[in-house]
Amino acid sequence: MDTLHLSRHISSQFNEEIEQIRNHVMAMGGLVEQQLHHALQAIANSDTDKAQQVIDNDRKVNDWELTIDNECTRIIARRQPAASDLRLVMTILKTIADLERIGDETRRIAMVALESFNTEQQDLLVNLDNLGRHVWQMLHDVLDAYARMDVEAALTVYKEDKRVDREYEAITRQLMTYMIEDPRSIPKVMNVLWSARSLERIGDRCKNLSEYIIYLVKGKVVRHSDESELERNARS
């Protein structure tokens, strides 16, 4: 879908550059999504090999950020983009910064999977399962919305973040109870808590990504606005 007519420049070379940079963002997004998926699997199955693989692959995410950063700089220098082209470049720069941070959070989650949990403590990790799947779906949906420049889909992701926040609060309360009941478990529980916190942060970043999509397509800055205002802007 090409709602912004990004492939209709008179300069076919510019069309190709834009096409390429968008594909690279999708590739980076796909990699980050896969990383998160693997990190969650590593935790669920106590799979240290997979966890290590996620940690090693984070470098690839970082490399993508540098590559795309360079491509954006080149477009700004050589094409002086305006209007939707300019918004696209600005959006991509912000998007890859958030994707890179999602990569970092994912790496943190994988580090937890490297630790050994005894069977009893293993139960703690189950708590992360739902939240993890929820956040992973959010990331998947927002990347999809980006590929299709779909404002409605971006809005759905935006609203999803509230539910993620509530799930995170519920997990926090539950983990507190564990700690009160068995203080010896505190170090392990803290690790699980940090992972939950990482997932919650990834949800926040997906929300950012959805705001960028609305800005890109509608030309309206919706960051730091409340939900009803954002919805009005996105649908106007």
């Binding site: 305006a82 209007a83 082209d85 918004r87």
Partner: peptide, 19 residues
């Protein structure tokens, strides 16, 4: 405004060099 979020598609096409 014209160079970041023009209201008209015609303006947009012109300043961004689109058909």
């Amino acid at each position: 405004t014209i160079f970041t979020q023009p209201a008209s598609q015609q303006t947009e096409d012109y300043i961004t060099g689109r058909f």
